[in-house]
Design a protein around this nucleic acid. Structure first.
Lengths: 235, 235
DNA sequence: ATCGTAAAACAGAACGTTCGGTCTGTTCAA
DNA sequence: TTGAACAGACCGAACGTTCTGTTTTACGAT
């Protein structure tokens, strides 16, 4: 369904070796296969939603056999849990020192909070990955087993997220303890936007909403002066 | 699954006669059956989500036969479309003059915008009906046929919504044209909250978020003095 | 007033399809 | 040569739809 899923898998292969280390197996082959599967799951979630993201569809889209899929992910639940963790990984922070930091750090391109939120919307939330994540979150709400599996990951992600923003942003004076809350509000707003985009007559409305929201939030949330940055930027 | 779905159907029976007029049929019986079905659909959507809201489940939960269900809703898509319209109806405004107005009108109980938003969250968004609506919206995003069916209803609902808030609220001076945008932001934020509630360790966080959000929005959005009220309140 | 009849409302069996999970083989790398 | 990686057939269950029958209601003719 998506454009050119076969030609440009759109997944980051050969870079996934951060998972449980396969002591014996062929690491490169595993990473490639899992990468293809992750890409297919994400594309399917974005294109047809959680319930239609079937084993058969993923298998076909990824171009792998049923056996390969089953070997890596014994159940659909396992497939979704691992896909979620795959989606959360790049936002949690730099895997190794020197890697690009959290997706929040657009400070070099965005001067104002409004611009920052626009970038967040365009590059993180309103993407295939962002919509796929949304599908998993919504599905897990009514799936106790899935919910139980992903909740710990989400808590860890949330803690990492809050730790990262503490270095990059600050709340207005007198409300320093509200920083995490403020960013939770931003994220909630943008997740909610997901359910408005498909039904909005004028796409510009979405941009206007992000813009106005940024203007409203700006007095309460500002970027830190580049200061906690110097200690770790050899590149 | 839900508590006492059989004892207190929790649907508004005998009040649904607003649909395409059944020239011949038995209006009361139809309303009762459709009411039971709507209640079962809403409960199922809330409890198990869109994909698990199967015909079999609804049929059993509603206590009606397969034939009755099929008769009223020839397809699952039709069932969902009609359920959505059923969910949207009470928010669109008073069906007849004298009926209770839109769900937005808590002005008599809520003094501040914060209290108003809390009530909106507790009584409209974070309810079985609110979560059911969310499930349909999310499902329709990846279901073109369903999306095409519900989009007109959503547009009408949106227009009615904006018309209603224009009588009840006003944007801050100098930004009168932003009223609809401001409320869209509020709704987006609260819809996004749906995807955070199940995974939040401390439920109080949600309350705090609604509270802080209300505090941030308050300078931009205020209730109109009771003035456009007198022309239509004989009760 | 009541009876006949057509249509709506309801009941439930049966359909083919697709689902996720399981199973037995085969290939590849160490 | 061993075990991980992969391949593909197979299973019972559940899905949404379609179908034929039965009951109930409305209403004009008698």
């Amino acid at each position: 369904m998506s454009a050119g899923t076969k030609d440009q898998p759109n997944v980051t292969p050969e870079v996934q070796a951060s998972d449980e280390a396969p002591q014996r197996g062929n690491a490169a082959r595993v990473a490639k296969t899992r990468g293809k599967i992750f890409g297919a799951v994400i594309s399917s979630l974005d294109a047809v939603g959680y319930s239609e993201c079937s084993i058969n569809r993923v298998q076909t889209l990824a171009g792998v056999s049923r056996g390969a899929l089953t070997h890596h992910f014994p159940s659909k639940e396992e497939m979704m849990v691992k896909t979620l963790e795959h989606l959360l990984a790049p936002v949690r922070g730099p895997a190794r020192p020197g890697d690009e930091a959290t997706m929040l750090r657009h400070a070099d391109e965005a001067a104002t909070l409004q611009e920052e939120l626009h970038l967040l919307w365009r590059r993180v939330i309103n993407t295939r990955e962002g919509r796929a994540l949304m599908e998993i979150l919504v599905a897990a709400r009514t799936d106790p087993a899935l919910s139980a599996r992903i909740t710990p990951s989400l808590h860890i992600y949330n803690d990492d997220f809050n730790r990262n923003i503490a270095n990059l942003y600050q709340a207005s004076a007198g409300h320093e303890d509200e920083l995490a809350l403020l960013w939770s509000i931003c994220r909630s707003f943008m997740r909610g936007l997901h359910t408005q985009v498909p039904y909005e007559r004028d796409p510009k409305i979405i941009t206007k909403m992000v813009d106005l929201f940024g203007r409203i939030m700006a007095p309460h949330l500002s970027a830190r002066r580049p200061q906690g940055e110097t200690d770790e930027e050899p590149v």
